[in-house]
């Protein structure tokens, strides 16, 4: 039996919003420690990994490991039926072929239950090793979203170059070129740790997709290392994260 309750549906809506542009379907692996999900986009160049520890939930019960294969479009439709401030309870019996979502209004005067059919999905899991990134940058999530949006105006390709002087985003195309550089700030909004400078090129449309997670976190962490996929991590309070990985462009 699996049961998890969140005080607010809004965070669940935001999590699904952060996933659904990359994934159509995915499997939530639920265990007694919390919920994990890992899936690649169709083109296999980006990956999203979700972790929600059980402490994130108002109530959490999982007697036996259970995998819930979900169609994210359908889940989004169900979540649209709920208000952001409704409490939500997700329930599934062992070996169930459906999951139940119950919403309760803030004043408890309205409850609504929905059933969603579960899918049997073949998930391709990757082994992501603990990586020592040469450059680790923390910046406001809204700033990162703005940079990705502005870069997209100029080119499909974005070069991210990080050194002790700062992190620089560059794009150049037919229209012209854009360069945005952020230096470390004394107030700590932007922090930059660099062991070795790194410069890599990425597909801007994936970066823009990752910024769908912006409403979830004030800050975003970016990890760069030579010849390793980019890490873009949005913490979910103190109890989890959404991590995106993006393979660098091939040097041609």
């Amino acid at each position: 039996m699996f049961e998890a309750r969140l005080a607010s549906t809004l965070t669940l809506k935001r999590i699904v919003d952060a996933l659904r542009e990359i994934l159509n379907q995915s499997t939530l692996d639920c265990s007694d420690t919390g919920i994990q999900m890992q899936a690649m986009d169709n083109s296999h160049v980006s990956l999203v990994s979700l972790c929600l520890r059980k402490e994130y939930f108002e109530k959490y019960k999982c007697n036996r490991n259970i995998s819930l294969g979900l169609d994210l479009k359908s889940l989004t439709k169900v979540l649209k039926c709920a208000n952001g401030d409704d409490a939500v309870t997700i329930k599934a019996a062992d070996k169930a072929d459906k999951v139940e979502l119950s919403f309760e209004s803030a004043g408890k005067e309205r409850t609504a239950d929905y059933e969603l059919r579960l899918l049997n999905l073949d998930q391709e899991h990757l082994a992501i090793p603990e990586t020592e990134y040469n450059c680790v940058v923390h910046m406001p999530a809204t700033e990162f979203a703005r940079i990705c949006r502005d870069m997209a105006t100029f080119s499909e390709s974005v070069v991210i170059a990080c050194s002790k002087e700062g992190i620089k985003f560059s794009a150049s195309g037919e229209m012209g070129a854009a360069n945005i550089k952020l230096s470390e700030t004394t107030k700590g909004e932007v922090s930059i740790q660099v062991d070795e400078p790194v410069a890599l090129s990425f597909a801007g449309r994936y970066l823009s997709t990752f910024t769908r997670a912006t409403p979830l976190a004030e800050k975003v962490k970016i990890g760069l290392a030579p010849d390793v996929p980019l890490l873009v991590e949005y913490p979910i309070e103190d109890y989890g994260y959404i991590r995106y990985y993006l393979a660098p462009k091939v040097d041609d």
Partner: peptide
């Protein structure tokens, strides 16, 4: 795909 490497080139299961 856009001259992108595939992630499995980096993170394939052993």
């Amino acid at each position: 795909e856009d001259l992108q490497q595939e992630l499995s080139n980096y993170y394939a299961m052993p």
